[in-house]
C-alpha cells in the first residue's frame, strides 16, 4: 500500500512535467497544425538556461527560471516569425522537416556551448519531508504544486482575457479568426512564446530531479507527442489529463513490470491507440 502511494506521488511528479511539455506542444498544434519536433529542444534549452543563470550568474532559482522563460519564449517567437510563418502555405511535410532542422541545430548549439556532459542542477528545495510515513523531497512537491498553478494561470489567461480568447478562436478556425479581425501573425507568435515558456518551466522544474544534457529533450518530446495523440491533438484538457495518465502508467510499469522497459510503455500505448484509431483518440469527427 505504501509503495503504491509512493508510486502515485512519483507519478504525479512525472505527470506534471509531461503535462506542461504536452501543453506547449498541443497549443502550437491546435493553432498552427505544426507538430513541433523542435519542442523537445526548447525544453532542453530551458534546462540549460536556468542552470547557467544559477551557476554562472548566481541567480536565485526562481529568477533563473524567469529568465529562462523569457529566453525560450523569445526563441519560440523567432522560430514562428522566421521559419514557420514562411511555411504556412507549404505542404505539411515541410513544417516537420524544418522543425527537425531546428532541433538538430539547438542540440548541437547546446553541446557546443555547454558540452556533452551530464550536469546536475541543485535546487534550494532538496529537503526531505515525511508525511504519514511517506517521504517526499520538497522539489517534487514543488513540481506538482507549480504545475497546477501554471495550468490555472494558463486557463485564466485563455478564458478570461481577450488575447487568450483570440488564441482559442484561432484554434477553432483560422479563417473565422481572421474574419473577426484577429491578427493571425500576432497570435501565432504569442502561442509560440507561451509554448516555449511552458517548456522552460517544465525543464526548470524537472532538472533538479533529473539531469541536464543536450539530449534531455528526446524522450520528453516523444512522450509529449504520445500524450497529445492520447488526449486529442490540439486539446488542452487532453494534454493535461494525458500527461498524468502517462506518468501514472510509467510509474506502475516501472514498479510492476520492469524499470528497463518503462520508457517503452508510452510508445506501446501509442502504437495500440493508433492501431485501433488511426486518427487518434477524440479526433474531431470525420471529414
Amino acid at each position: 500500500m505504501e509503495i503504491l502511494l509512493q508510486q502515485l506521488f512519483n507519478s504525479l511528479t512525472i505527470g506534471s512535467v509531461y503535462s506542461l511539455v504536452a501543453l506547449g506542444l498541443t497549443l502550437v498544434y491546435g493553432i498552427l497544425h505544426i507538430p513541433n519536433f523542435a519542442h523537445g529542444a526548447l525544453y532542453m534549452m530551458g534546462g540549460y538556461i536556468t542552470l547557467t543563470m544559477m551557476t554562472a550568474f548566481g541567480f536565485n532559482y526562481w529568477v533563473a527560471m524567469f529568465v529562462s522563460i523569457l529566453v525560450v519564449g523569445l526563441i519560440g517567437v523567432l522560430l514562428e516569425r522566421f521559419v514557420f510563418r514562411l511555411l504556412r502555405e507549404a505542404p505539411p511535410l515541410h513544417d516537420k522537416i524544418a522543425a527537425i532542422g531546428i532541433l538538430l541545430f539547438l542540440e548541437a548549439f547546446a553541446q557546443f556551448v555547454w558540452g556533452a556532459d551530464f550536469q546536475t542542477m541543485t535546487s534550494p528545495y532538496g529537503q526531505v519531508v515525511t508525511i504519514m510515513g511517506l517521504t517526499f523531497t520538497m522539489q517534487r512537491l514543488l513540481i506538482i504544486v507549480s504545475a497546477i498553478v501554471v495550468m490555472i494561470l494558463l486557463y485564466l489567461f485563455l478564458k478570461k482575457t481577450f488575447t487568450g480568447a483570440s488564441i482559442i478562436a484561432m484554434s477553432q478556425s483560422r479563417e473565422g479568426a481572421s474574419l473577426v479581425g484577429i491578427n493571425i501573425n500576432k497570435v501565432a507568435m504569442l502561442t509560440f512564446m507561451i509554448s516555449g515558456g511552458l517548456a522552460a518551466i517544465a525543464a526548470s522544474l524537472a532538472s533538479p530531479i533529473n539531469l541536464v544534457f543536450p539530449g534531455m529533450g528526446h524522450l520528453v518530446i516523444l512522450k509529449a507527442f504520445v500524450i497529445i495523440i492520447l488526449g486529442g491533438m490540439g486539446s488542452i484538457p487532453g494534454a493535461i489529463v494525458g500527461g498524468y495518465i502517462l506518468g501514472f502508467s510509467e510509474s506502475l510499469g516501472a514498479t510492476y513490470i520492469s524499470n528497463d522497459y518503462k520508457d517503452i510503455i508510452a510508445f506501446v500505448l501509442l502504437v495500440i491507440i493508433l492501431t485501433v484509431k488511426p486518427t487518434g483518440l477524440f479526433a474531431k469527427g470525420e471529414r
Partner: peptide, 11 residues
C-alpha cells in the same frame, strides 16, 4: 551548420 541548412533548404 547542417541543421540551419536543412531548415533553409526546405523553406
Amino acid at each position: 551548420i547542417f541543421g540551419p541548412i536543412l531548415t533553409l533548404i526546405i523553406i
